[in-house]
Simulated scan of single mutants.
Amino acid sequence: MARDQRRSVPPDGERSGARRDLNFTRPSLARVYDYVLGGREHFEIDRRAAHGFLNVAPESAQVAKDSRNFLRRGVRYLVGEAGIRQIIDIGSGLPTTGNVHEIAHEIDPTVHVVYVDKDPMVLTHARAMLGDDDTTTVISGDLRAPETIFDDPQTRALIDMDRPFAVLLSGILHHVSDKADPFRAAAEVSATLSPDSYLLISNFLDEDPRAKDLERAFLDSVGSGRFRTWDENRRFFEGLEMVEPGLVYANRWRPDADTPVGNQVETLYVGGVGRKV
């Protein structure tokens, strides 16, 4: 999700009210990415965690930006070309430039969007931002337990699962450990799709020589971040028909004038969109 206006952040430990349930003693993935993307909603512990991988490869900050750009292009395709009018964004994260619902509504303001996250700060910001928008909502849910998402009453109120819809898994499956079985989670998400629905996925790729060092840095700093092979990333789309150009480096997926094709971190990140036939 995103927001154009930024406000200053009180010193660590001085937040109250709706934020009393936040954990400031360990890094949050949402806040770490917010810092890397130039946001303001992060703490010293998140900044230290981010530098755990930025110190290994300073250029890796571009991966986060490429991820967001791929997501935006994917949403424009889904709404503008594929005709999707219902979207579930799982692991939506903290504000950055360009919300999924804003991008979708530029094409059709009737598109329904359900944001899903489990980070209290994300939920607080999203609810404040969305207000009484009757086409968009945010719920607390966990990809590892898909029923917390697809059986949620708010999801059911906005998404007609008998009609085509899209699920976005942008930059989240690589934060699901092998032990937690991300392939099962992706398969369960695919199983919920009605015919002509779509699944968008983007992930870290284990091809570049830097990948192993970055994986260790992510695991040490934020506790997750698996760089998987091409074959492993293809497994996430099993049973789906791939939209052209298939699973590719994310910057090579339908690039536009703002896509930095061929940049120095392009080989660290893949993306694709599959359709339920």
Rank of each mutant, 00 (worst) to 15 (best):
P164N: 11
V32E: 02
L240G: 06
L247P: 04
L29M: 11
P95M: 07
V138Y: 09
R226Q: 14
R6Q: 12
V270L: 08
A2L: 13
G141W: 02
S221L: 05
M129Q: 14
A128V: 10
D21N: 15
G274Y: 00
I45L: 08
A61F: 04
V122F: 14
V100Y: 09
A64Q: 00
D132K: 07
R26G: 14
L169N: 08
D4H: 15
G262R: 09
K65H: 14
G274T: 12
Y33W: 11
A18V: 13
A157C: 12
M242I: 14
N251Y: 00
D213R: 13
S224K: 09
D46E: 08
F204K: 09
R216G: 01
D231C: 13
F165C: 03
R31A: 10
V243A: 05
A186Y: 01
I149A: 06
T192C: 06
D208R: 08
P255H: 02
D142M: 12
P245C: 04
R40A: 15
S221K: 03
V222S: 09
N251K: 11
D181M: 03
G271Q: 02
G39R: 04
D208N: 04
D178C: 00
E215Y: 09
H175D: 10
L130E: 10
E241K: 05
A2K: 07
I149S: 01
M161W: 03
I107E: 09
D206S: 15
D34H: 06
V79S: 13
E266M: 01
F165W: 13
N233H: 03
A30R: 03
T267Y: 01
G274E: 00
V75H: 10
D132P: 04
N23I: 12
I201A: 11
V114G: 04
S202Y: 01
P245G: 13
V116H: 03
K212C: 01
Y198P: 06
A18R: 12
H125K: 07
D142Q: 02
E244M: 06
L123R: 12
A104E: 13
R19Y: 15
I201G: 10
G91L: 04
A257Y: 00
N233D: 02
G83C: 02
A18T: 06
A180N: 11
